[in-house]
Design a protein around this nucleic acid. Structure first.
Length: 355
DNA sequence: TTCATTTGACCCCC
DNA sequence: GGGGGTCAAATGAA
């Protein structure tokens, strides 16, 4: 990230002046060659800023989530859902707890699918913003590909019981079936956080090169962002009230953010004070605090707990929403304080790419 | 030195 | 007994 780059500063100023010019000229140039040229100038500025600023890759767009058969139209494949009947936080896989497998059955379990992430010609499972440690791999009878077992990196230090199993889909090797078990209860420690951050930082850098290419190839990601960012306010409010978050049972009040809603002030005001979201984890369009993504949002650093909660909220919501296909991997965008959320022309001008 | 991954072995459930 | 899940030592990477 080169936020302090003089190049960005100059480009930003140039773009602001172009905006001012456009505003000054008003409607009288609308549709005329002058207006189109201003739009083109703005578009060019934004392209350049995007490339310079957003080290976050577009590559995660590959990791769109396959629509679930049970939830037609859902952009997120959540096959099954966290089991509400048992949220036993005491579940442990610590050595010695030989009845762990029985307890494991009682942990909230849900399955998602994500497309393979490609890097350096190699394919890997999609990331989800959490820090996982692989602890095993097993060949599964009848399956072409082995199953990998991951647990939360912070299991030992914080007792976080979240685990996941990742297995390539037999029919479509580009798709990974990911089974999550247990809920993240971890909060990255400073030390661990830095370690996780550095690894994700590398991931960011690795994706950066892909980002520009794919950005050019997939110019409509911003459109998808505009139309597809859906946030379940009701569940958030339930959470605020301390009510249980049940993906299935609640009536959903999905809020799809229109471009105007992405104005920072409007955006924040749409949520309870404690909800300061940051985009996003890959396998869904939920928010996360991955350092690769939005490390600060409005100057606030967010804890892991809220992330995991919000993750559930959005994951659950997207499993039942009929919102347009969300193929916008928010994680790709490296938001910063300089992100022009408050620039109303930012998104409209992106339609230029579509045309 | 620390942390992640690999992999063979072990354990439990069906 | 077979299969799935987990452990833990060995190894590698940063």
């Amino acid at each position: 990230m080169v936020l302090a780059s003089p190049v960005i500063k100059e480009l930003t100023e140039g773009m602001e002046k172009a905006i001012q010019l456009k505003a000054h000229m008003g409607q009288e140039v609308s549709g005329k060659i002058e207006g189109m040229m201003i739009e083109g100038i703005l578009s060019s500025f934004e392209n350049a800023l995007l490339i310079l600023k957003w080290g976050g890759s577009m590559e995660q767009s590959h990791q769109h989530v396959v629509p679930s058969t049970s939830m037609p139209g859902s952009p997120l494949s959540v096959i099954g859902s966290p089991k509400s009947e048992d949220l036993n936080p005491g579940f442990t896989t610590q050595p010695g707890s030989r009845d762990s497998s029985r307890k494991r059955k009682a942990t909230p379990t849900w399955t998602e699918q994500g497309q393979a992430r490609t890097e350096n010609g190699m394919e890997g499972p999609p990331e989800d913003g959490h820090s996982w440690r692989k602890y095993g791999q097993k060949d599964i009878l009848g399956a072409k590909y082995p199953r990998s077992y991951y647990r939360c990196t912070y299991r030992d230090v914080q007792g976080c019981c979240a685990i996941k199993q990742v297995q390539r889909n037999d029919e479509n090797p580009l798709v990974f079936d990911i089974t999550y078990k247990g809920k993240h209860t971890c909060t990255p420690t400073p030390r661990s956080k830095s370690a996780a951050l550095s690894s994700e930082k590398q991931e960011c850098n690795r994706r950066h090169n892909i980002a520009i290419t794919e950005y050019q190839q997939q110019p409509d990601v911003t459109l998808n962002f505009q139309t597809g960012l859906t946030i379940d306010i009701q569940n958030i409010e339930h959470q605020q009230l301390g009510l249980p978050l049940t993906p299935e049972g609640l009536g959903y009040e999905n809020h799809t953010l229109a471009p105007s809603a992405l104005d920072a002030d409007n955006f924040y005001s749409s949520f309870p004070p404690s909800f300061m979201p940051s985009p996003a984890t890959p396998e869904s369009n939920h928010f996360s605090t991955s350092p690769c993504k939005m490390s600060t949002f409005g100057g606030v650093q967010h804890g892991q707990q809220s992330e995991s909660d919000i993750t559930e909220i959005i994951s659950a919501t997207t499993s039942v929403t009929n919102s347009p296909i969300i193929d916008f991997p928010l994680e790709q965008w490296d938001f910063s304080l300089s992100f022009p959320f408050d620039n109303p022309t930012f998104f409209p001008s992106f339609y230029q790419f579509k045309e």
